[in-house]
């Protein structure tokens, strides 16, 4: 028998990351396809973004990844404290994200039949993709928070490490989403 549980957990988390990676890859492919088709509509869509919120959120997540790395380096006791930090920052991210959605919905930027944003061809698709992709990312973040809470209770370095890998993955997805929806105008 090869080193057992820790080994199994590590393979599992990498498989989950690969699987989820392809899930997002499908959406990135859609984004790429439509961006190529409607460059103007997408540029205009990026212009609608609340830039400072996106930037702040990027900082928040990067900091949380740092805290996560620290938690893995630290001993079990200190890890618990670092993980509280991760939980807090994840919460802040979700809060800001929610606020951002509320602003957009207030502006009439809702996907589907009630869309009331700019009518440049492609902008409505951009908005739909914005909600789909940031929404899916937020769901993953929620799942990540649940895992972090679990890792904090378990106090098992192997578990913490694996949850860390997943957390970095979710962070990485955001680092790709950020330019797509906030910067590339």
């Amino acid at each position: 028998m090869i080193s057992g549980r820790a080994h199994a957990l590590r393979i599992t988390v990498w498989l989950v990351v690969a699987s989820e990676g392809l899930l997002f890859a499908g959406l990135f492919a859609l984004y790429a396809g439509y961006r190529a088709e409607y460059p103007r509509g997408f540029a205009e869509g990026v212009g609608l973004a609340v830039g400072w919120l996106g930037g702040t959120n990027t900082l928040v997540l990067l900091t949380s990844s740092f805290a996560m790395a620290a938690a893995i380096q630290a001993g079990p006791r200190a890890a618990r404290r670092w993980l509280v930090g991760v939980l807090g920052l994840g919460g802040v991210f979700l809060g800001l994200k929610g606020a951002e959605w509320a602003i957009h919905i207030g502006d009439g930027l809702v996907p589907g039949a009630h869309y009331a944003g700019p009518h440049t061809p492609g902008t409505a698709l951009f908005v739909t993709l914005y909600y789909a992709m940031t929404g899916l990312h937020a769901l993953h973040l929620v799942a990540g928070l649940a895992m972090v809470a679990w890792a904090r209770r378990r106090e098992d370095p192997a578990v913490t490490e694996c949850v860390g890998i997943y957390w970095h993955f979710v962070d990485l997805v955001w680092v790709v989403l950020w330019p797509l929806f906030y910067l590339l105008s």
Partner: peptide, 15 residues
Amino acid sequence: HLGLFDPAAGGDPVL
């Protein structure tokens, strides 16, 4: 009715 794949809303069915 997101129209992600509906050409009437700019979507592409082949995608």
